[in-house]
Lab assay of single mutants.
Amino acid sequence: QAPETKIVDKSRVACDGGEGALGHPRVWLQIPEDTGWVECPYCDCKYVLKGSKADAL
């Protein structure tokens, strides 16, 4: 199944896999201003900063 994409309001987000005990260790991710998105290294969930150029795609 394809990784999930989430639109977020802040450039710093936490990801834990979203499945409680079945998820992964919580990691904090920083969305770079130049790209407007970041992917979780564990679950490949893509976080897109709302209003960024990546959000316009």
Rank of each mutant, 00 (worst) to 15 (best):
residue 24 H to D: 05
residue 41 P to T: 04
residue 12 R to A: 08
residue 28 W to Q: 09
residue 30 Q to D: 14
residue 6 K to Y: 06
residue 16 D to N: 04
residue 56 A to K: 13
residue 14 A to W: 11
residue 32 P to L: 07
residue 23 G to R: 15
residue 46 K to M: 03
residue 16 D to Y: 10
residue 51 G to M: 02
residue 9 D to P: 04
residue 14 A to P: 09
residue 24 H to S: 03
residue 46 K to T: 03
residue 44 D to R: 15
residue 55 D to P: 04
residue 42 Y to C: 13
residue 30 Q to L: 12
residue 49 L to W: 00
residue 43 C to L: 01
residue 45 C to V: 15
residue 54 A to L: 06
residue 52 S to Q: 02
residue 37 W to D: 01
residue 25 P to M: 05
residue 7 I to K: 06
residue 29 L to M: 01
residue 17 G to W: 04
residue 6 K to L: 08
residue 16 D to M: 07
residue 39 E to Q: 14
residue 14 A to N: 01
residue 4 E to S: 15
residue 5 T to P: 12
residue 26 R to P: 13
residue 12 R to I: 14
residue 43 C to E: 00
residue 42 Y to E: 10
residue 40 C to S: 10
residue 48 V to D: 07
residue 10 K to Y: 12
residue 36 G to C: 01
residue 4 E to P: 13
residue 1 Q to F: 13
residue 45 C to A: 15
residue 53 K to G: 12
residue 44 D to I: 07
residue 47 Y to Q: 10
residue 35 T to Y: 06
residue 50 K to D: 13
residue 10 K to F: 13
residue 36 G to Q: 03
residue 19 E to L: 12
residue 3 P to N: 10
residue 10 K to S: 13
residue 18 G to A: 06
residue 50 K to I: 10
residue 18 G to T: 03
residue 20 G to Q: 05
residue 55 D to N: 00
residue 31 I to K: 01
residue 40 C to W: 11
residue 4 E to W: 14
residue 49 L to Q: 13
residue 56 A to M: 12
residue 40 C to R: 09
residue 23 G to S: 14
residue 5 T to E: 04
residue 26 R to S: 05
residue 16 D to R: 06
residue 4 E to M: 15
residue 51 G to K: 00
residue 36 G to M: 04
residue 25 P to F: 09
residue 28 W to P: 08
residue 15 C to R: 00
residue 28 W to M: 06
residue 54 A to D: 08
residue 45 C to G: 15
residue 45 C to M: 15
residue 8 V to Q: 02
residue 55 D to G: 02
residue 44 D to S: 15
residue 52 S to F: 01
residue 23 G to E: 07
residue 24 H to C: 01
residue 46 K to W: 04
residue 44 D to E: 11
residue 12 R to H: 07
residue 10 K to N: 11
residue 31 I to Y: 03
residue 56 A to N: 13
residue 24 H to I: 03
residue 11 S to D: 07
residue 57 L to D: 10
residue 12 R to Q: 11
residue 37 W to I: 07
residue 32 P to R: 03
residue 13 V to W: 05
residue 6 K to P: 01
residue 4 E to C: 15
residue 20 G to F: 05
residue 57 L to Y: 04
residue 13 V to C: 09
residue 46 K to I: 14
residue 6 K to G: 04
residue 39 E to R: 14
residue 24 H to L: 02
residue 4 E to V: 14
residue 48 V to W: 09
residue 17 G to K: 02
residue 11 S to T: 12
residue 44 D to V: 07
residue 30 Q to C: 13
residue 5 T to H: 11
residue 9 D to E: 12
residue 35 T to L: 11
residue 32 P to H: 08
residue 18 G to E: 06
residue 40 C to G: 10
residue 33 E to V: 10
residue 55 D to L: 00
residue 47 Y to C: 14
residue 14 A to Q: 07
residue 41 P to K: 04
residue 21 A to Q: 10
residue 12 R to T: 12
residue 30 Q to S: 10
residue 34 D to S: 07
residue 8 V to C: 05
residue 9 D to T: 14
residue 6 K to W: 02
residue 33 E to I: 11
residue 53 K to R: 07
residue 53 K to A: 12
residue 34 D to E: 11
residue 39 E to G: 09
residue 5 T to G: 08
residue 20 G to D: 04
residue 20 G to W: 03
residue 22 L to F: 11
residue 55 D to K: 00
residue 33 E to H: 05
residue 55 D to V: 00
residue 1 Q to I: 12
residue 26 R to G: 03
residue 20 G to K: 03
residue 3 P to K: 14
residue 35 T to K: 09
residue 21 A to D: 10
residue 50 K to Y: 01
residue 35 T to N: 02
residue 31 I to G: 03
residue 36 G to F: 04
residue 38 V to D: 01
residue 49 L to D: 15
residue 51 G to N: 03
residue 2 A to V: 10
residue 6 K to I: 14
residue 1 Q to L: 12
residue 25 P to W: 04
residue 44 D to Q: 14
residue 25 P to Y: 05
residue 44 D to C: 14
residue 37 W to C: 01
residue 34 D to W: 07
residue 42 Y to Q: 10
residue 51 G to S: 03
residue 45 C to H: 15
residue 7 I to V: 10
residue 12 R to M: 10
residue 17 G to P: 04
residue 40 C to I: 10
residue 1 Q to T: 13
residue 27 V to I: 11
residue 16 D to G: 02
residue 23 G to D: 02
residue 33 E to K: 08
residue 20 G to M: 03
residue 29 L to G: 02
residue 2 A to M: 14
residue 20 G to I: 02
residue 17 G to H: 02
residue 7 I to C: 05
residue 35 T to I: 13
residue 49 L to T: 14
residue 29 L to N: 01
residue 43 C to P: 00
residue 5 T to M: 11
residue 40 C to Y: 11
residue 3 P to A: 11
residue 43 C to G: 00
residue 39 E to K: 14
residue 5 T to F: 15
residue 1 Q to K: 13
residue 25 P to A: 10
residue 9 D to Y: 13
residue 42 Y to V: 12
residue 54 A to N: 05
residue 3 P to V: 11
residue 51 G to I: 01
residue 33 E to Y: 09
residue 46 K to R: 13
residue 1 Q to D: 08
residue 16 D to C: 14
residue 16 D to K: 07
residue 42 Y to I: 14
residue 44 D to H: 15
residue 12 R to D: 09
residue 46 K to F: 04
residue 10 K to Q: 12
residue 38 V to L: 04
